[in-house]
Simulated assay, not measured.
Amino acid sequence: MQATVTRQSAMRELRDTGRVRLPGRPALWSRWTRGLTLVLLIMIGVAGCAGLVTVIVAAVNGSSRITAATVVGMAMVAAMLAGLVALVLWWRRSLSRHVGVEHSPVVLEASGLTLRGVGPIPWRDFGPARNMMVRAEYSSGWTLRAVMPLTPSGLVNVNERTSAHLRRRISPSTGPAWNRGHRWIYVPGVEGMRQADVMQLINVAHQMFGHPSRTQR
Rank of each mutant, 00 (worst) to 15 (best):
V101I: 05
R124D: 08
V20K: 00
Q8L: 02
V101Q: 08
P26A: 08
W184T: 02
S171E: 05
L87Y: 08
V118E: 04
L22D: 11
S9F: 09
P23A: 06
S140L: 14
E137Y: 12
M193E: 01
R217F: 13
S139L: 03
Q207N: 15
G112N: 04
V107S: 11
R65D: 03
V57F: 05
W184E: 12
T143F: 01
G35P: 10
V187H: 04
L115G: 07
L150P: 03
D197K: 00
V198G: 11
R21N: 13
E191M: 08
V39C: 13
T114P: 09
V53F: 09
G48N: 04
G192N: 09
A177T: 12
W32G: 07
V85P: 05
M43H: 03
T151M: 10
T162C: 05
T33F: 01
V118I: 06
H165A: 13
P122I: 12
A82R: 01
S173M: 12
Q200A: 13
R34E: 11
A27Y: 00
S64E: 15
A3D: 14
H206I: 03
G51E: 03
N131K: 13
P23V: 07
E191V: 05
I42R: 10
A68M: 02
G210M: 04
C49D: 00
W178E: 08
A79Q: 02
D16E: 15
S9T: 13
P122Y: 03
M133A: 00
I202G: 02
L52A: 06
